[in-house]
Write a protein that binds this DNA or RNA. Structure first.
Length: 217
DNA sequence: CTCCAGGACAAGC
DNA sequence: GCTTGTCATGGA
């Protein structure tokens, strides 16, 4: 069975550097992380496009709910997400929108703080920590669970247990965790975009099974 | 028509 | 602690 570092190596050889997160600033990354919850990225892009030059914490935190929700419509769950972006923006403003000030906070403490925000769960918090705040927490999402499960790992159902299991087998590097998660998503996107496909799979023996099950759930 | 996409939360056990 | 119903659009 492939080790955790070996899986990374094969993904990297196949897909190369991913240059994540697709955002122009830390704040935009935070917004994208909330909007993409259980939502296809292309729908998130539509919502981000609707926001346009209003994609700023001061503007979003002050915008009337219905107006913001309407702009977010394409990304789904627009009522929830409008409220959550408002709270997130208020939190960001409470640090004077100073990303470096937030980065100086201890990682574990910052994670706890993010998790206290309504609408920020474990996966979203870890994405924010890695892609906006340079803190090494391994991100667990549905693709990660499927991938490791099909390779043969006994994947813990608990998010934290799974995260710690992976982190024990990797150095605590933000750059590594950044790239690893982006590569797993790249793999998932390829499978979802090309059905059926089964050539050039980076995971050899589990190729067919991985593709099939990734498509069918 | 059905299924699901880079989840989170409240309620119930 | 873990499980279930809910939130919602858009593309395949």
């Amino acid at each position: 069975m492939l080790s955790v570092p070996e899986i990374y190596q094969r993904l990297f050889e196949r897909y190369g550097q991913q240059h994540w997160w697709p955002a122009e600033s830390a704040y935009e990354m935070l917004v994208g992380a909330v909007l993409t919850q259980n939502t296809h990225w292309r729908n998130v892009e539509k919502a981000l496009g609707n926001l346009g030059n209003q994609l700023k914490p001061q503007v979003i935190s002050a915008m009337p709910h219905d107006q913001l929700a309407n702009l977010l419509r394409p990304s789904g769950y627009y009522n929830q997400k409008a409220e959550r972006l408002r709270l997130l923006s208020q939190w960001f403003i409470s640090y004077d929108c100073d990303v470096n000030a937030i980065r100086r906070i201890d990682g574990a403490l910052l994670r706890h703080t993010l998790l206290s925000l309504k609408g920020v769960g474990r996966e979203t918090a870890d994405c924010m920590l890695v892609y906006a705040f340079d803190k090494p927490f391994f991100i667990i999402d549905t693709y990660t669970r499927r991938l490791f499960s099909r390779i043969g790992y006994d994947v813990p159902e608990s998010y934290e247990h799974f995260r710690l299991l992976i982190e024990q087998q990797l150095p605590p590097s933000v750059e590594l965790y950044n790239e690893y998660h982006a590569l797993i998503v790249a793999l998932g996107k390829e499978h979802c975009a090309a059905k059926p496909c089964c050539s050039g799979c980076p995971l050899e023996r589990d190729c067919h099974k991985t593709h099939l099950n990734t498509l069918n759930g």
